[in-house]
Design a protein around this nucleic acid. Structure first.
Length: 271
DNA sequence: GTACGGCCCTGTTAGC
DNA sequence: TGCTAACAGGGCCGTA
């Protein structure tokens, strides 16, 4: 389940292999989620950026190919043509290369991913991206600003984090990790300035650990070369329901918040 | 505008 | 052993 660290890892791997390559052909699975892939045929790729959990591939005609990996999306290169026999192939791009053409494949088993082509910077057709809050390391995202943003809603803190509005790029895993680290109950509906500040620090630390580890691989996530991340070894809350809290030894509890599995320590993270 | 529920998807796992 | 149901969950959309 790619969140910011996984998407950033893939971005770093993709950028050097896509920049200044021309898209000479493309194809897609027959679905509006993926069919815009072909709209970049004939363009040259100028760069690969990331915003929230979206990969943004800019082209030389002032447009952007925006890709969300969903739950199971991943990229892989092929030196031959696209593997059309792969039932999970959702889109592919044939690119010029220094050693001849190669194919970038987008494989997504569960089809939660999506692809759009937009005018550069115009994300009105992608609501979550359009409304995404600041990047975690944006200097403008101070504890005060984060607190103010969280205070605008009475929804559960975890729900707000998953909305991408107070901070961009946090998904289910890193939300649980940050909340545990900051000792904030995921169902809390209001935080003081101090606790909001601690949560911001904890989320940044969790995301940074994830980036440094090359992402978290639980089931499907793979880097461009098929490599797995190692951050799953660092997880202290996510998926540890029923196990002892690493801080106080209390049995960790699991439940649903915003229809997402959530794990927290009932002692450290009192409501 | 905000909140909330339901849906999209398919591989894996648990339960019978 | 084989079948069925539950589960995983980010983003979007319709409804209240």
């Amino acid at each position: 389940m790619p969140e910011l660290p996984e998407v950033e890892t893939i971005r770093r791997q993709l950028a050097p292999r896509l920049t200044q390559r021309e898209v000479i052909d493309a194809g897609s699975f027959a679905s509006q989620k993926f069919s815009p892939a072909i709209e970049v045929i004939g363009t040259t790729i100028e760069g690969v950026e990331r915003r929230a959990k979206y990969l943004i591939i800019s082209t030389d005609d002032d447009r952007e190919l925006v890709v969300h990996l969903g739950m199971t999306g991943r990229f892989q290169f092929s030196s031959t043509g696209p593997d059309l026999a792969n039932p999970h192939l959702r889109a592919w791009w044939r690119l010029t290369g220094p050693d001849g053409p190669e194919t970038l494949e987008f494989v997504d088993t569960r089809r939660f991913g999506r692809i759009r082509v937009v005018a550069a910077g115009d994300y009105r057709s992608i609501p979550t991206l359009h409304q995404a809050g600041p990047e975690p390391w944006d200097p403008a995202l101070t504890a005060k600003a984060f607190h103010r943003s969280l205070s605008r809603s009475r929804r559960a803190i975890k729900t707000q984090l998953l909305s991408q509005r107070p901070i961009a790029g946090v998904g289910n895993i890193y939300a649980d990790e940050g909340l545990w680290d900051a000792r904030v109950n995921p169902r809390a509906t209001r935080l003081g300035l101090d606790r909001a500040g601690r949560l911001l620090v904890a989320l940044r630390a969790a995301l940074e650990r994830g980036v440094n580890a090359g992402g978290t691989t639980l089931r499907d996530y793979r880097g461009l070369d098929g490599s797995v991340g190692s951050n799953q070894e660092e997880l202290r809350a996510y998926g540890r329901g029923g196990e002892p809290c690493l801080r106080c030894g209390t049995e960790m509890r699991s439940g649903q918040v915003d229809a997402r599995s959530t794990t927290w320590c009932p002692a450290c993270q009192r409501y």
